[in-house]
């Protein structure tokens, strides 16, 4: 097996990277693929929490790098989706705990074991974010339809084209925009950047549009990826479509919505 490595990145914080890593990872695994999701947010790990595995973390990424644990001991298999595994970040405050060599070794091991390795990047453009993107074949740039998020995404494009192993070998890293926390009502009222505007400005292909939805928060409260917690909800359908596009399927681009949203669109606007 030789996995494809995806980095989920954004520059800006809080746009939905961790939510996306969990949901895309689960969606691919639910479709029968062998998936590892890897938390690169050293010191601020959250992916374990979103996946509901926080009480099962014994060894983490740094333990594997430092040789205190084997990769197999550190991988946590999801209880609901058997083909989904998690490698948790360490809670150490030592930002240099992830070494470049160590990361390269672990990524190689993961590549041999899985079909997909999805790396949840920390925010920012520092070491952690650079290490997360370093070995990626594909970048999913999570962007909110908002001016500072788009600017930061553009910045990430530059880094992806310069600082990844692929870029250094003069190979093209595949880049996609995932528009998250999209609110169709607000976009229709012109309060939010339109999808076309974001795509034109970044000149990147669109992987999917994830609507703003309370189901995302519900899923994180429960500790399950949204595709597992509410499989038919609008964000879950959007993430599943995005996952199918990653596997090369052509899926018509829609913005899934809940009936509640439709109701809101028809009547909610006037009441406000």
């Amino acid at each position: 097996m030789v996995a494809k490595v995806i980095v989920v990145t954004s520059g800006k914080g809080g746009v939905g990277k961790t939510t996306t890593t969990a949901a895309l990872g689960a969606a691919l695994a639910q479709a029968g693929q062998n998936v590892a999701v890897v938390d690169f947010d050293v010191g601020l790990r959250n992916l374990d929490l979103i996946m509901g595995a926080e009480r099962r973390v014994v060894y983490d990424f740094v333990n594997v790098i430092q040789g205190n644990a084997k990769l197999n001991q550190a991988l946590i298999r999801d209880k609901r989706v058997g083909t989904l595994s998690l490698l948790a970040a360490s809670q150490t405050r030592d930002k240099d705990a992830l070494t470049e060599k160590g990361v390269a070794r672990v990524m190689k091991e993961l590549r041999d074991k899985f079909d997909w390795v999805i790396c949840d990047s920390p925010a920012g453009i520092e070491r952690g974010a650079l290490l997360a993107m370093r070995h990626a074949d594909i970048a999913v740039i999570v962007t909110n339809p908002e001016i500072s998020s788009v600017r930061d995404s553009d910045r990430m494009v530059g880094l992806l084209d310069a600082k990844t192993v692929k870029a250094e070998k003069d190979e093209e890293i595949e880049k996609h925009v995932l528009l998250a926390r999209y609110d169709p009502d607000r976009a229709a009222r012109g309060e939010m950047l339109a999808i076309d505007d974001v795509l034109e400005i970044l000149s990147l292909p669109l992987l999917g549009v994830i609507p703003e939805s309370r189901d995302v928060l519900k899923a994180s409260n429960l500790g399950a990826p949204v595709t597992v917690a509410s499989p038919v909800s609008a964000p879950a359908r959007a993430y599943k479509d995005a996952a199918r596009r990653l596997t090369g399927e052509t899926v018509t681009m829609t913005i899934p919505s809940d009936k509640r949203n439709l109701f809101g669109m028809l009547f909610g606007g006037r009441a406000a």
């Binding site: 908002e146 001016i147 788009v150 600017r151 553009d154 910045r155 530059g158 976009a187 009222r189 012109g190 309060e191 939010m192 950047l193 339109a194 505007d197 400005i201």
Partner: peptide, 24 residues
């Protein structure tokens, strides 16, 4: 007021990014 503030954001971004891309 008809189009909302998004077009302004779009214009500002386009100007800013064309500058930042060359600077970078």
């Amino acid at each position: 007021s008809v189009q909302g503030t998004a077009p302004v954001a779009r214009e500002r971004l386009q100007v800013l990014l064309s500058h930042e891309r060359t600077v970078a």
